[in-house]
Design a binder for these strands. Sequence first.
RNA 1: GCCGAAGUGGCGGAACUGGCAGACGCAGCGGACUCAAAAUCCGCCGUGGGCAACCACUUGGGGGUUCGAGUCCCCCCUUCGGCACCA
Length: 817
Amino acid sequence: MSYDPHAIETRFQSLWNEAGTAEVTEDPTREKFYCLEMFMYPSGKIHMGHVRNYTIGDVVARYQRMRGKNVLHPMGFDAFGLPAENAAIKGGAHPKAWTEANIGTMKQQLSRMGFLYDWSREVRTCDPEYYRWNQWFFIRMFEKGLCYRAKRTVNWCPDCATVLANEQVENGTCWRCHSLVALKEMEQWFLRITKYVQELLDDLDGLSRWPPEVVAMQRNWIGRSEGAFVDFAAEGSATPIRVFTTRLDTIYGATFLVLAPEHPAAAEVTTPDRKAAVEAFRAKVRAQSTHDRSTSKEKEGVFTGAYADNPFSGERLPIYLANFVLMDYGTGAIMSVPAHDQRDFEFAKAYGLPIRVVVQSGGVVEESMTEAVPADGVMEASGPYTGLPNREASVLMAAKAREEGFGEPTVTFRLKDWGISRQRYWGTPIPMIHCPTCGVVPVPEDQLPVLLPEDVAFTGKGESPLASHQGFLNTPCPKCGGPGRRETDTMDTFVDSSWYFFRYCSPKEESVPFEGSAAKYWTPVDFYIGGIEHATMHLIYCRFFTMVLRDLGLVPFAEPVDRLMCQGMVIKDGAKMSKSLGNLVEPDEMIERYGADAVRINILFLSPPWDQLDWKESGAEGAFRFLNRVYALVEEVATDLKGPAEEPAGDVSPLRRKTHQTIAKVTAELDQRLKINTAIASLMELTNAIQAFLPAYGKTPAERFVLREAVGALAAMLSPFAPHAADAMWEMLGQIGFLVDGPWPRFDAAIAKEDEVTLAVQVNGKVRGQITVPSDADAASVLAAAKDNEKVKAHLEGKNVVKEIVVPGRIVTLVVK
RNA sequence: GCCGAAGUGGCGGAACUGGCAGACGCAGCGGACUCAAAAUCCGCCGUGGGCAACCACUUGGGGGUUCGAGUCCCCCCUUCGGCACCA
């Protein structure tokens, strides 16, 4: 019988299923391992990116399990979201039916890959028993002031007809449909992630097992900036105008103030004669899309006619509005120091405003400046601070501002509160009731979940379908009993995914979001794998949520994930796989052609898990050939291996050494680095070594022992990567049970150790000869052997050896003159 | 512009903390088996020179540290990713 992947795979998949192999329960006597992959959006069918992500996870889960750990390896579906609703608008099925059908297809595809998931723990976020806890968290957060309603300028996607979080705007376009995002004033629900911003930042230092680029992206996204607030008394304004600056030292060089066009004080300070011009400018900016505003770097502004006083110098500074000042960063107002800030410089040049150097970094003269000079230097033209190094002056000036009460040192962040209102149907209803007398009132806990009604019409126009559903809309106020109106917005689906990994611990729990002792046993997640595209979205939100859960007393830690890996993208012919490019590779077709095991091996072997992977069909053929070769080999020797065997004494044979070396190598790789491609390469080497051994195999009990050990270890180590083929081989070898139940083969360092090593001998940095010495030879005898080598001798002729270096097991270097 | 990752044969990639660059595979070439093909097996396979043993060169480019650099340091180039008028 030759290797028939389909027969083997379907047979073992059903055997694993029948045996309930994947199902696990808490067992305090065993060490746990929580292996998690980002759950799936049920878009229709799986793609190669999923296959890669989940194959890596499956390798880790199976390996840890073979090592004897109690491994939680669940899968679920991020089942709420826009595509389901868009499908309904296009005249398709109801979002619920569409979603369920897709889940059915995708689950089957996952099973065909041989992924060992505990499906008894499956979580679907569109299930009322799941999203009721979103609502429960929402209310808890509302009670703790972590959730609030505010009118804000928000990002509005006209195509999706909904609001987007800052994180969901890419280059001024919608992250899903890429239409231009507009700004709109709306009442929105916000989660106060900014309350945790410092902790989110500080904890990054402890995430040593996260990819550094993800940590860097989060740090960048959080955008901590130290500086100071300074208040400028302004004509026409009762309250002073507060600016944020990181360069307080340059305040004597401020020659004007600039407010964001939307700044609330703008209208107030504007003098009557400037009103028309100011209004025209504000209208113009308002009409611009976010995209236009952020891409046009042209500095434009308008004078308000008003002036403010520099609290340090007493100087009167004109107040402008300008497009380059953003309302949602700092205070929405700045002091402009054209000599030391490039944007201010450009604006000053365009509007003929003065430029004054106050930090001298060497030869800077106003008249000849072509750009701003942000460098450090010595203070000049800065009153009492003149002559000081600017950094020192900055500290003194901040202290002075605080003393005098017109400012203070401060820290600002780029991260904003998380707007979670979505004007869509297919999501978690926000559990709030608007009452004309009591205001906004949470739905009482015993009335959760607020169910999403199913009988709605999908027009795709204007408001969410919920807004016109009378049965949903009208409800009595829980406080006064009077007529109330339900909130019709639903939650951002990133709320769903912020805590799903806790739910897996006790998915059927009905009284709390997750059961305490189960969560205590399984969490935090030991190993998490997913795409890097979630670096500043999901991976920040889930950290934030975990901090909230901690403060609610639900978990004892703040960081949900110990080790994170982001798998690289799967591309084809150098380009991202996409339908429009016509370079999609369908996992099902590949399984059909080569079997799931070969697909798994190919995707694992082609590059390290975190690198980009260019899908090569020839690679799948190679993987198939490899499995075929191993299978045929096991088949060939299986009967003989049942004969008498006896552990050899004395010298270790090369095959035996190779076997133990390979176990050591693969074990180390799976325990630590996870450079899975090299682990597979060493299994290929072991296969080659076994094949090389066979022609001289004399069938003595000692030789049989060595061969059996080699073949058994090979089958076992193949199991995480190609589980079906490995189990089939295990069976041929007369073994009972599944490899995933372990044990993982053990190695003996003494056997793995080479007793002789070949060293290169360098003379003046060039390899001149090779010597073979016992691996435990001392430096003196190694040197003697090196100098005795004929080829080396020729290069030592008539020269003096001035330096001798022996690197044990590596190299000998002689330096001669 | 700022931050991050990376540049190694025809290709994917390997090389642990500085120690024989190119493991393993793909493609290619030659051979065996076959009437033939596929599959399979064996051999060759960085570049240049030489019949040869061997010699020289080679990890994006240039400098440096070192007995020794793909690996460490400085400068530059290229590609990819993130952020981007962030005050």
